[in-house]
Amino acid sequence: MRVTLLGAGDTTGTPTVGCDCDTCAAARERGVERTRFSVHVENERTGESLLIDFSPDFRQQFLRDAVSLPDAAVITHIHFDHLHGLGNAFRVFDSLPVYAADETDPATGESVAETVADQYDYLDPLEVRPTTPLEPVRICGLDVTLIPVDHPPLVCYGLAVEDPETGTKLSITGDTSYDVPDESRTVLADPDLLLADAIVPASLCEHHPIGGRHEDAAGVSRTFGTKHMTREGALALAEELGAERTRLVHVAHFYPADEAFEEPLAVDGERYVL
């Protein structure tokens, strides 16, 4: 299983358009980016590949990293930075199965699968396949499980991607607070590689209108506001899950410049073979 981090950033990316903060300036100086979140997973045994989330930066990411066009895709939730690159399928794909959860979201009155089908009904190549969370489905020769996480007010899912022949496993928390349900933690556990949402360091919780949540014994917030984990929360979750290797993703440009490129914060283009 070959994993390429096409986009390791949050909804505005780093550098952020029109921003001259020290972190964005440092990214430009280093020649690194964190575009909007997307992960490419190649099954080297079958020659097939799976795309997790369609970043608005799809075109730039695929040209830059020279990965193969996916044979299938998974959409974790309907926020702009994870879904709206799907329009790039126009004139690029002859056909593309797109897997998304079949659970009805109380906030929207429809499932992620239904929203994707409704918003992109003009794209003939798309075949939206409603998928039941916590039930593995074979995609591109890999066992993929959608995992409910906590990203209010919308439903959102993480993923476990396992190779049934080698036993290697990629876990992705998805956009989530630290309050990941126990059943989901069980499915995410013991990955060879964990990609964990870590939007900012806990020290920045004081700048959020409602502060931080899910404090540890030392009072360090593991959730920033309500929707995302802090760096400290993501690392705590990684330890609890027994991750062999962890990369922090969905990273915002609000990290102080002297922390923004420290391990294990990911940048675009990283590749891992599991």
Rank of each mutant, 00 (worst) to 15 (best):
T104H: 05
F58S: 08
S177L: 08
P70R: 12
C156G: 15
Y272N: 04
T23I: 02
A257D: 05
P15D: 11
L235N: 02
I78M: 03
S177K: 09
V155M: 08
L126W: 05
R245G: 00
A266W: 01
G269L: 04
T14E: 11
L193F: 01
D94I: 05
D81Y: 13
H253D: 02
D197Y: 09
P133G: 08
I147E: 07
S111N: 02
G174Y: 00
V32R: 10
D94V: 00
V267N: 12
R222N: 13
A27I: 00
T173F: 02
E232V: 00
E42S: 11
E206R: 15
V98D: 10
G225I: 02
V98W: 03
A113G: 02
T223N: 11
H250G: 02
P181C: 13
A257K: 06
Y272R: 04
D124M: 01
A101R: 12
A218R: 08
Y272P: 02
S177R: 14
F93V: 00
Y178G: 07
D192R: 08
D20L: 12
G167D: 09
N88M: 11
T12G: 00
L188H: 08
F80R: 13
F254Y: 12
D216R: 05
N88T: 09
G242A: 04
E103H: 15
G233S: 11
F62M: 12
L188R: 07
V3R: 10
V112K: 07
P136T: 12
E44T: 15
A236G: 01
A198M: 06
Y122V: 12
L265T: 02
G9A: 05
R64N: 13
A234G: 01
E44M: 11
C19H: 01
G158E: 10
M1D: 03
S184M: 07
L154N: 13
A238H: 00
E33K: 15
A252I: 04
H84D: 14
P136G: 14
T4H: 11
L86P: 06
R245P: 00
H250N: 10
